[in-house]
Amino acid sequence: MAISPDINRQTAADASDLSGMASARFSRLATVRLFVLSHIASKAAEKKYGLLAGLRLTEARMLLVLGNFGPSTLERVMREMSLEKALASRSASSLVDRELIRRRPHDIDGRAVELSLTERGRGVFVKLHDAILGWNEEWLSVLEYEERATFFICIEKLICSARRKASEADETLVVGADF
């Protein structure tokens, strides 16, 4: 396809070809593919968590973090889940109201909030944990053993790179701020 330098002389077929190429390039962007995968997986998990325990996705994940790591500060939970403070606080409040977790001042740093599972929360955690192991295996079953290993290596590299880039962007915003 030869595209004329004069945009006014391009045919509809030329424009369609360009649009198709741009669309294909966009669809192959790593960030787009990761977003699509994350969105589909999150929607499926939200549905399963809702059916299994009547929880929203962030609530279920918060229980899973606390069950796996034990009592933790809200800041640690936020870091593990990559959550904004407002959403983490709302999820924690909902779980406290349902008596699945307890919230109290941290022993050492009274400004920090420590979250921990209640007995009832531990029971829900066990149910969620067993289910998530099954779902994880189901999702990964389409990959051969070597592909799984490569997948996890690549994901970890991408996470580290994204965190570095986010940190650099934060530093640029602070340094470059001229108000």
Rank of each mutant, 00 (worst) to 15 (best):
I3W: 14
N8C: 05
Q10P: 00
Q10V: 14
D14K: 00
D14S: 13
D14T: 08
S16V: 10
S16F: 14
S19H: 08
M21I: 12
S23F: 10
S23G: 09
S23I: 01
A24R: 11
R25F: 10
F26S: 06
S27K: 08
A30M: 09
V32N: 11
R33T: 14
L34T: 10
F35I: 00
L37T: 12
H39R: 11
I40S: 10
A41D: 14
K48H: 11
K48I: 10
Y49E: 05
G50I: 02
G50R: 08
L52K: 08
G54W: 05
L57K: 03
T58G: 00
E59F: 03
A60Y: 04
L64V: 02
V65P: 01
V65K: 00
G67M: 02
G67T: 02
F69G: 00
P71N: 03
L74C: 03
L74F: 03
R76H: 12
M81A: 09
S82L: 09
E84W: 05
E84T: 03
E84A: 13
K85D: 13
K85P: 04
A88H: 05
S89I: 01
S89W: 02
A92S: 13
A92W: 02
I101G: 04
I101P: 02
R103A: 12
P105A: 15
I108A: 11
I108Y: 13
I108D: 10
D109S: 04
D109H: 05
D109R: 04
G110F: 06
G110D: 09
R111G: 08
A112N: 04
E114H: 00
L115M: 11
T118Q: 07
R120L: 14
G123R: 13
L128G: 13
H129G: 01
L133N: 15
G134I: 06
W135Y: 15
S141I: 03
V142N: 02
V142I: 15
L143R: 04
L143E: 07
Y145H: 11
R148S: 08
T150A: 15
I155G: 01
K157Q: 11
K157W: 10
L158Q: 11
C160M: 09
C160H: 06
S161V: 00
A162N: 07
R163N: 07
A169G: 01
T172P: 00
L173C: 06
V175Q: 12
A177C: 06
D178Q: 05
